[in-house]
């Protein structure tokens, strides 16, 4: 008889605390230590795809922006493929795009910002296409277990309407919390505004967070 695998309990999560920047973004904590730093710019000149900016604020239950929050994003390339060996979709990889970035919010305004490209559509369960989306992971002082959410794009209404994850959210009013609003800047740059509400008495306002 084959043996069943051993099992260990997952290590308990703990808050990232107020000084999460020291470990994950030391330049933001105020010092230079590593030669290579991870950051909020996911693109280089060679990257394929439409340049976009993602920006917003993260609000607590009083409506105050979190100024010590740290956000990571993970996304597919412009063709809709992840730079990871488990993604075997028949689509091109982009050697100039990893699809991952991180940043802390601005200590004064609470604004966060990423420079990236708009991702393509990725296959989902049962062969159904997902709408273009970006995964976000949010940690901060007071957050005991990192919060997972997704960003969708308001100019992809058709794709959003058939997205299995969005449609799996029972309350239509809550789906809207995951849709970023496109704003055209004067310099022609497309920016999407994506505010995240960690807590609100109004379920239609509180951002949907996922148990992956």
């Amino acid at each position: 008889m084959t043996q069943l695998p051993v099992h260990f309990d997952e290590t308990a999560s703990q808050t990232g605390g107020p000084y999460v920047h020291i470990g994950l973004a030391p330049q933001q904590a105020g010092f230079e230590i590593f030669e290579h730093n991870f950051g909020n710019v996911l693109v280089s000149p060679a990257t394929q795809g439409e340049r976009i900016m993602i920006e917003g604020q993260v609000f607590d239950g009083s409506g105050t922006p979190l100024r010590d929050v740290l956000i990571e994003i993970w996304q597919a390339n412009a063709a809709g493929r992840y730079a990871h060996p488990a993604d075997t979709q028949d689509k091109p990889l982009d050697p100039a795009f990893r699809g991952w970035g991180r940043t802390g919010a601005d200590f004064d305004t609470g604004l966060y910002r990423f420079e990236t490209i708009k991702p393509g559509r990725v296959i989902g369960r049962q062969g159904r296409l997902q709408a273009p989306h970006i995964s976000l992971w949010i940690v901060a002082r007071g957050i005991n277990l990192g919060l997972h959410t997704r960003l969708y794009f308001d100019d992809e209404a058709e794709a959003n309407a058939e997205d299995p994850v969005l449609n799996g959210i029972e309350w239509e009013v809550r789906r809207r919390t995951l849709v970023a609003q496109r704003q055209q800047r004067d310099d022609g740059q497309a920016a999407y505004r994506f505010d995240i509400v960690i807590q609100s008495p109004d379920p239609a306002r509180e951002t949907v967070f996922f148990d992956l």
Binding site: G61, A83, S135, Q199, P203, L212
Partner: peptide, 25 residues
């Protein structure tokens, strides 16, 4: 600090896709 930084709504459970099973290398 967790009091105002905790979602009131339940997390929504999803079936994983490539978005959840891949990550940066």
């Amino acid at each position: 600090t967790s009091v105002l930084r905790s979602p009131r709504n339940a997390l929504i459970s999803i079936q994983q896709t490539l978005s959840e099973t891949t990550s940066p290398v």
